[in-house]
Design a protein around this nucleic acid. Structure first.
Length: 636
RNA sequence: GCCGCCCUAGCUCAGCUGGUAGAGCAACUGAUUCGUAAUCAGUAGGUCGUCGGUUCAAGUCCGAUGGGCGGCUCCA
């Protein structure tokens, strides 16, 4: 007999090979009907999995947090089954996991090309299979037997998967005449699937390797019910409205031109203003923290890029030019100039660290398929700094960079995720250096109190790094801040400082950016604020609106007063109705509209209207100026 | 770069199975002077991304090419 402890603390005695379903049934028929899977000793299992040992058991119903993931994974099987039934031997199955917000399944076919028009057909077949409410059963098979079976079925990818598994047996899931290699767990019956939708098609390399075959991926999503599915689709629609590419055009911030070239941003006046505000902010914040501003050239001799290793490792991403038989590389990074500045005179240990900051504009030839609005471009400006310090200073420096990152994230109200990437197989430098650097990064991360992931072996070849990622409107993550420890470039460029002992020593260099690239940051920022920037960031902070021509002179005068006071202000004197002007200002997401009618003119006041529709009490121009100054000083 | 899809006026989109283009908004002109999200009327605007092919005839079919979108690989 087995002792099974339930979530309420009670213990049931059951025979060996009793299933979670049996136990559920013994509690209530309803529970048994609703059970999707079970959690046994912290492991997810099928409701029909026979229990072999004593332990704790919790049934997973629709309301459990794990339910959706299991349903989506099972729904991927349902989709694969539908595809196999419809397109049969033309299509081979590969893998189909649950992902955030849904699932996908990758198919291989030489003949069948999926098109969006197939979606309704596949969905209909899925609905039919779901309605048939087939039992989903698990079976365990010997490795070789399974290989033989899939080979016979013509499923070469499944064969390859099993061949790479170092196990004696594999588990298979069968529903109707569809069988798939899978770890599980799965829902007990296909009838569980009630709300699903195919969403998009994409290519994907087999096992994520571009040397492998290109598979056809069908993305889809599934929910517990149609209401949740509809809500999800509505959320996606909302996210589309926040898309920075759309808002960039609507708010007249920036554009791209085929004539200029892909990934090269054209900043319109309002976008350039936003950029300038952020750049001013950056300079101020860096000076406050002991950085010195430097400026390097856009192009440097090709020989220098050879010395740094960029020519060897980064060449395909670089643009080159030649003048008077001398080759130059357009900089993809700012570090070289900073090192040359460091090298321009002897350095003492007393004067370290040096912290060189540059809003450095770099150009990188990114593959055409990866360009994405402002989030992935070919020419961008980094808030880049290089800190050259003694090895014993790494710890302190990394900590201050982390706190800088936290300050900035706090000001903009960003949540972020962090990752530590450690030494890759192919790397240079001593174990001691790597340990010191990795520990410095790790302890700074731990001190930050924020959770972080570790990417083993994902560091740069010259040193470990911390990456900080922000999310866009669709929850896609984009790397912004990064902190990298570098022992190589100081070596290659023979950077030295004179120590207390009078000898020359090798410094360490930290590469770091806080927002990353201004372009990417603004892209994320636009989506974060949905275009409604806080006052201090708004390219236009206020707009003066007259009700009729009668107040035109006074409105113009108010406008000039505000502009003279340093407020970013516009005036709309057009012969249009007030409602029309307000609508336009509202759509331009301008924080304050200053309405001027005869009343205000008489009292020498303005009537401010906030973009959320609320009105402030009429006030004098100088009161409004003070108000704006106070608000924006606090980064609000 | 790879896979799929898309590309019609400044923007958002119509245009059935091929018969030489249409709406709304924006723009411009005029009238209106009207207090918190669209005043009315009129005018103008497109070699249907580009090049080539099929056809009596192509925005509509085929091919190539450029750009964009969604992924994959790569990355700030």
């Amino acid at each position: 007999m087995l002792q099974i402890e339930l979530p309420d603390g009670s213990v049931k005695e059951v025979a060996t090979a009793t299933t979670p379903y049996d136990i559920a049934l013994s509690i209530s028929e309803g529970l048994a009907r609703q059970a999707i899977a079970a959690r046994f000793n912290d492991q997810l299992i099928d409701v029909y999995a026979p229990l072999e040992t004593s332990g704790t058991l919790a049934l997973i119903t629709q309301n459990s947090p794990d339910a959706l993931e299991i349903i989506r994974h099972s729904c991927a099987h349902l989709m694969a089954q539908a595809v196999k039934e419809l397109y049969g031997d033309d299509v081979q199955v590969t893998i189909g996991p649950a992902i955030k917000d849904g699932f996908y399944y990758d198919f291989y076919s030489e003949t069948k090309k999926f098109v969006p028009e197939d979606f309704p057909v596949i969905e209909a077949k899925m609905a039919e299979l779901a309605k048939a409410d087939m039992p989903v059963s698990r079976e365990v098979m010997g490795r070789d037997e399974a290989i033989g079976m899939f080979r016979e079925m013509g499923e070469a990818y499944k064969v390859e998967l099993i061949e790479d598994l170092d196990v004696e047996t594999v588990s298979l899931y069968r529903q109707g005449n569809f069988v798939d290699l899978c770890r599980g767990p799965h829902v007990p019956r296909t009838g569980v699937h009630k709300a699903f939708k195919l969403t998009s098609l994409a290519g994907a390399y087999w096992r994520g390797d571009e040397k492998n075959a290109m598979l056809q991926r069908i993305y889809a999503t599934a929910f517990l019910n149609n209401k949740d599915l509809k809500a999800h689709i509505a959320r996606l629609e909302e996210a589309r409205k926040r898309d920075h590419r759309r808002l960039g055009r609507e708010l007249d911030l920036f554009s791209f031109s085929e004539d200029a070239g892909g990934g090269l941003v054209l900043w319109h006046p309002k976008g350039a203003m936003l950029r300038m505000i952020i750049e001013d902010f950056e300079r101020k914040e860096h000076l406050k923290r002991g950085y010195e501003i430097v400026v390097g050239p856009q192009i440097l001799k090709t020989e220098l890029w050879k010395m740094s290793g960029h020519y060897e490792n980064y060449r395909e991403n670089m643009y080159f030019t030649e003048v008077d038989e001398q080759g130059y590389g357009i900089k993809p990074m700012n570090c070289l100039a900073h090192m040359l500045i460091y090298k321009s005179k002897p350095r003492s240990y007393r004067n370290l660290p040096v912290r060189y900051f540059e809003l450095g504009t770099v150009h990188r030839h990114e593959k055409s398929g990866v360009l994405h609005g402002l989030l992935r471009v070919r020419g961008f400006t980094q808030d880049d700094a290089h800190i050259i310090c003694r090895p014993d200073q790494i710890d302190q420096e990394v900590k201050s960079i982390m706190s800088f990152v936290q300050d900035v994230a706090g000001i903009f109200g960003f949540e972020y995720t962090m990752e530590l990437s450690t030494r890759p197989d192919k790397s240079i430098g001593s174990d001691e250096d790597w340990d010191r650097a990795t520990n410095a990064l790790r302890s700074a991360l731990e001190d930050s109190g924020q959770p972080f992931d570790i990417n083993e072996g994902d560091g740069a070849f010259y040193g470990p790094k911390i990456d900080v990622k922000l999310k866009d409107a669709l929850d896609r993550e984009w790397q912004c801040a990064t902190i990298q420890c570098d022992f190589t470039l100081p070596e290659r460029f023979d950077l030295t400082y004179v120590g207390a002992d009078g000898e020359k020593h090798r410094p360490v260099m930290l590469h770091r950016v806080i927002v990353g690239s201004i372009e990417r940051f603004i892209g994320v920022l636009i989506e974060h604020y949905a275009g409604s920037f806080p006052l201090w960031l708004s390219p236009v902070q206020a707009i003066v609106l007259n009700v009729t021509d009668n107040q035109a002179d006074y409105a113009q005068q108010v406008f000039e007063q505000l502009r003279a006071a340093g407020i970013r202000v516009e005036v709309d004197l057009r012969n249009e109705k007030l409602g029309f002007k307000i609508r336009e200002a509202q759509m331009a997401k301008i924080p304050y509209m200053l309405v001027i009618g005869d009343r205000e003119m008489e009292e020498q006041k303005v009537a401010p209207r906030f973009r959320n529709g609320k009105n402030l009490d009429p006030c004098t121009v100088s009161e409004f100026i003070d108000f704006v100054a106070a608000e924006s000083a606090a980064y609000k």
